[in-house]
Design a protein around this nucleic acid. Structure first.
Lengths: 148, 148
DNA sequence: CGATAATAGTTTGTACACTAATTATCGTAC
DNA sequence: GTACGATAATTAGTGTACAAACTATTATCG
């Protein structure tokens, strides 16, 4: 046995730490997003749309790695608060064209204050964030390959 | 400007990658835990109880960083499937003493096969996992400190 | 052309996850 | 010893998240 690191308990801690870290960071966004009337997943959808709109549910699903079944009601809420529009594509009535309203587009200015506020609160430097990002990317790739 | 890394977009990707990585890894556990009748959060509760039982809701809440409001119904489900017992503490009727049933205790043998299976599926080596763990610990600490 | 397969979203059912409000119990101070 | 504040857990309400079933539309094959 000796004192080599135990892969089992380490793994437990990694999965555990991953879940907690994700919840904590989302919790960090909450007070910043709430004044804008957004939840964190809704914020991610808006980010995608600010980047490129219109997008279909399938495209959003692929970009955000979220189930269509999760996105469907989420998009209805975003429409209800007036940030997005949901129209059927005229070429293919099956696909939904999700686009921004003027209010949704205007929200971008406010939203751009969020990331620096998060970085400040985290108090981590660029190198640490980059290292984390590298590790996470590796995990995502590893988990994706074997996924379903 | 030059070509230095933009902290804003990096941060977006980090929070984004964190959420996706957490979901993906939980998804990796799903097919392994389902035969045992457990979800991932339920599995974490069982891990805590195998480590040390009995535990109160407050103690579990602190260990797992989960809201008592989240744990309450979760524990009822674990009791319904027969893995845990929920009794009021005789010394202090306010606290709930959560303990294992013989079935819950016996489940441990089966559960010990899970971590190595996850590590295998992830296909990451120890050093990568350790590096990830270090980064996550830093994030958790950073987010916790400023938290409420 | 018409049956069938494939695709895009939605709906349903179960289970987190958090905030806020509520209930029950305990400790303390008067 | 009773009123009061603190503590522990539960409940209510909203919003993800996923799997599976369902609907509507489009594409394809015979």
């Amino acid at each position: 046995m000796s004192d080599m690191v135990d892969p089992l308990s380490l793994d437990r801690q990694v999965c555990f730490a991953l879940a907690i870290a994700a919840r904590n960071v989302v919790g960090l966004y909450r007070p910043l997003l709430e004044p804008m009337g957004l939840t964190h997943p809704q914020y991610l959808v808006m980010l995608a749309l600010w980047e490129r709109a219109p997008l279909s549910v399938k495209e959003l699903s692929k970009l955000l790695r979220l189930d269509p079944g999760t996105l469907s009601p989420l998009l209805k809420r975003l429409e209800a608060v007036g940030y997005i529009r949901r129209r059927r594509d005229s070429q293919d009535q099956r696909v939904l064209a999700v686009s921004l309203t003027p209010e949704g587009l205007a929200l971008r200015d406010e939203a751009e204050k969020v990331p620096p506020a998060i970085v400040k609160r985290l108090g981590m430097n660029l190198e640490e964030l980059q290292e984390l990002h590298r590790s996470l990317t590796r995990v995502i790739a590893a988990a994706d390959g074997t996924h379903h």
